[in-house]
């Protein structure tokens, strides 16, 4: 009889606990939260400093004075492989090295979950690049937010802008200047330098929960990667690259300058 009570009690407890657990888990994944993504530019393993001497893969000494890039079309992938695509009206960012606020981007209304994957485009996708002028707001407004990042003669955005100086450059003031754009053309094809990054967290997933502080993806962006692989870029040979077939080499290089260093959950 005692044995019966024991098992009855055990069963009752189990019946009570299991749904309770399940409810708790359901609650945990109910609702929406936010994520933050911080882009930390680095060179030679430390925070990038304008005006400091570095050496590129071609062995050339250089200093940076400008490093900006567009990030767009952010996608978060959870541990089950479900994808959350940031809405089109809030997925364009222009990250400028000298403006730390611009390098901390926030995605809101993300379904609660454990996110292990992060995807984004370096550049401004072709649909947005051909959109009506009324849909070019904020960092996409050629007169304001996109000032200096819009080619008016070859209508499109400059995806990445890197400038500096190097003794290897024969240009005035030893300048080097890389302005990389081209989204593939509107009516007929052109070069396409858009690159989609698909990154995975190194360890801990980003835990998005309703009412909780946003988890923080800490990205490291290696500025010297632009000179490194797969194509070693020599400033002496190519001190200035704009809209040209050669720009593809630089785009192929910046396609792997991003890594998720760590995720910080609060």
């Amino acid at each position: 009889m005692q044995k019966f009570y024991f098992w009855a009690l055990a069963l009752l407890t189990a019946v009570m606990i299991i749904p309770a657990c399940k409810d708790a888990r359901d609650d945990e994944f109910a609702g929406f939260g936010s994520v933050e993504i911080e882009f930390e530019n680095q060179a030679e393993g430390d925070a990038l400093v304008f005006g400091k001497n570095y050496t590129n893969a071609a062995g050339e000494s250089l200093q940076f004075s400008l490093f900006n890039y567009y990030i767009s079309n952010v996608v978060l992938v959870n541990e089950n492989g479900d994808r959350f695509v940031a809405p089109k009206d809030s997925c364009y960012f222009l990250c400028k090295h000298d403006d730390p606020d611009s390098r901390l981007i926030r995605i809101n209304n993300v379904p609660a979950g454990n996110y292990t994957g992060l995807e984004f485009v370096l550049g401004v996708d072709s649909a947005k690049s051909v959109s009506p002028v009324t849909e070019r707001l904020g960092v996409l407004d050629p007169a304001t937010g996109a000032s200096g990042h819009y080619w008016s003669w070859n209508a499109g955005y400059i995806f990445m802008k890197m400038e500096g100086n190097s003794p290897a450059s024969a240009n005035p003031d030893n300048k080097f200047q890389y302005h990389i754009g081209l989204f593939g053309g509107f009516n007929s094809p052109t070069l396409n330098n858009l690159k989609t990054m698909k990154l995975t967290v190194p360890a801990e997933a980003a835990r998005v929960r309703q009412g909780k502080e946003a988890p923080h993806f800490h990205m490291v962006v290696d500025a010297l990667e632009v000179f490194k692989s797969p194509n070693v870029l020599s400033i002496a040979a190519n001190p200035a690259v704009h809209a040209s077939p050669f720009s593809k080499n630089i785009a192929d290089n910046y396609a792997d300058m991003f890594t998720i260093d760590h995720v910080h959950n609060h």
Binding site: P132, A143, T144, S147, Y150, S152, W153, N154, N187
Partner: peptide, 28 residues
Amino acid sequence: GGVPNLDLVPLNAIQSPVEMDNTPAEVL
């Protein structure tokens, strides 16, 4: 054919260093 939309055409002349050599921000 560098510009796909009539609305964006004037930006070219405004910014061209040999035409108006200005910025759209300054014009606004």
